[in-house]
Design a protein around this nucleic acid. Structure first.
Length: 209
DNA sequence: TAGACGATTGTCT
DNA sequence: GACAATCGTCTAC
């Protein structure tokens, strides 16, 4: 991983990093070809103090250890049989992270549809869906760095969101942190999980120009 | 089109 | 043995 990419995932609040991540491109290279997509939805989880976070109250297990690693470390975990893709933020020992919940396919859509035979946009509009589409069905990359192997994220935005909206996080049960607006989306993009057709920007998908 | 609910599986207590 | 940062299907409008 480059220094610039490491710096992107630290040095400011995780909520800000999650917001900044929208419009960056997630790139996964396999022997079958390259798949990539623009990040359109991300959620921030703020470590020990966040009742919804896996590391709440300093919880440390084999499964969530990646959260405690260096900024830019990939954290892959399984929920109800589905693989989820996260990136650890902040210095090692500070267990904060960002869950990537939706991407708009750019390269290799045909490959994604081989992995997950669903019509667009159902192919990548959810955290478990996008990992299935990419063929990320193992924890091999858990605790490895972005860019160290075949999975990375661009240092710069490659598309500029027209408007970023903040909402409460999905699937977070009751608690004082339930309502916190830590989920960030590209407004109007069809690949945002749970988005409604009537809210879609059919012309630009919520991107500038 | 939108809301409700049951299936399902690795992980922790 | 219970639970979870979900998904897909079914039903009602």
């Amino acid at each position: 991983m480059t220094t610039a990419l490491a710096e992107f995932f630290t040095g400011r609040p995780t909520a800000q990093i999650a917001q900044d991540l929208l419009g960056h491109e997630l790139i996964y290279q396999t022997s079958a070809g390259t798949m990539s997509g623009w990040i359109v939805e991300a959620e921030a989880y703020l470590g020990e103090q966040d009742t919804a976070a896996h590391a709440f109250n300093g919880r440390y297990t084999a499964a969530n250890a990646a959260l405690y690693d260096a900024p830019g470390t990939i954290y892959i975990y399984i929920l109800r049989g589905y693989y989820m893709l996260d990136v650890a933020t902040q210095a090692a020992g500070t267990p904060q992270g960002i869950l990537i919940r939706g991407i708009e396919p750019h390269q290799g859509l045909d490959l994604m549809q081989q992995h997950r035979a669903k019509p667009v946009p159902d192919i990548t509009n959810g955290p478990g869906k996008l990992t299935a589409a990419l063929g990320l069905q193992s924890k091999d990359l858990n605790r490895t760095m972005l860019g160290a192997n075949n999975l990375t994220i661009t240092e710069q935005v490659t598309r500029q969101p027209q408007e970023i909206a903040a909402t409460s996080r999905v699937g977070v049960s009751a608690g004082s942190w339930q309502e916190r607006p830590l989920r960030y989306i590209v407004a109007g993009n069809p690949f945002v999980s749970g988005s409604r057709k009537r809210d879609w920007d059919r012309e630009h998908h919520g991107w500038r120009e």
